[in-house]
Amino acid sequence: MAELTLLSEATDPGRAGLDGIGSAVDEALGLPEGSCDVTWRQCLTGTGTVICLLTTDEAGYPDTDQQTRLHQSLSKALRQSLNQTAVNIQLAVTSRSFTPPLVVSRPIATVVGGRTEIRDDNWAEVSSVIRLDPEQFPAEALSGIEDFSQLEVVFHFDRVPVAKIETNARHPRGNKDWPLVGIFAQRGKNRPNRIGVSRCRLIEVSGHDLHVKDLDAVSGTPVLDIKPYMSEYGPRSATRQPQWATELMRDYY
């Protein structure tokens, strides 16, 4: 058996639509027809994304191929059920035999302007706006932040497909001249939770808008948290890093 809870700003597509989505899950996971029970909850998700929370009776988690099929099948079924040409989804899978705590984060802001294309280097002087969601927060949520010169920004790499997530070791940027290192020993965007952390310069505050420079996030990126950078949070001892990291970062800013 499997249970799928869908969180969306869209209206419930009805029983026939939910049954179609359930059938797509059954097929993707190789389950008997009718195994997946689907529930729709209409709520604000912040970006129009459909959040898909799947719980199965199977031990462990679906493998990479199953997750890819599941993501594709859900996308197709949701497009048909909602009669839309495109649907952005976020998928989280847990197992009843092993259920770690599930964290669902709602974006607090969105990156506006700056770059639209995804590329690695030359972020220095890129200007953009972090626009706080006015439906969730009054402008006073930013009161006093203008006294800081730098911000720390936590955001979601929402353009990274689930199928592209790395869980093992890889050559940074696919460059075989650099060593094979674990995904947690590098800062690539294809991370298990697709979380990005960056520092940027605060230029101006205007209402719900933070005008910044050097933020390495493209326009439309969902922002999960914003913090003022305080010098006391910097390294308290000398830092070190391997040569490949220095080479990788040479043209980043």
Rank of each mutant, 00 (worst) to 15 (best):
A217E: 07
K164G: 01
E140R: 01
C43A: 11
S231K: 13
A169L: 05
R250T: 03
G196T: 02
L91R: 01
P13I: 03
V197T: 10
S97G: 07
T239Y: 01
W123S: 01
V126D: 05
G196E: 06
D225K: 15
T11C: 09
L132S: 05
L248P: 04
S73I: 05
L29V: 14
Q72A: 14
V50C: 11
T221D: 11
W178T: 00
Y229S: 03
S35G: 10
N88H: 04
V223D: 05
D216N: 12
G188V: 07
Q84I: 00
Y61C: 12
V38N: 03
S73W: 02
G144Y: 10
E3Q: 11
R106E: 03
R240Q: 07
G48L: 13
C36H: 10
L202W: 08
H208N: 13
L54F: 09
I118A: 12
P179A: 14
T85Q: 08
V205I: 09
Q136C: 07
L70D: 10
D158A: 14
R170Y: 10
I226L: 11
V38Y: 09
P134A: 01
E135C: 12
D158V: 00
E58T: 12
N190G: 05
L215F: 02
A92G: 06
S128P: 09
G234L: 13
T64G: 10
P222W: 12
P222R: 13
S95R: 00
K176C: 04
D19Y: 10
E247Q: 15
L248D: 09
M249H: 13
Q67E: 13
P62N: 10
R173Q: 11
I89L: 14
L6A: 03
D12I: 04
I89N: 01
E58Q: 14
R96V: 14
E166K: 12
F137L: 09
T11E: 12
L91A: 02
P235W: 03
T47H: 11
P161Y: 05
A163S: 15
T167E: 11
I51S: 03
G188D: 14
G114T: 09
A245M: 13
Q90R: 06
A10V: 08
A92H: 06
D251C: 01
I89Y: 00
R106D: 00
N193T: 13
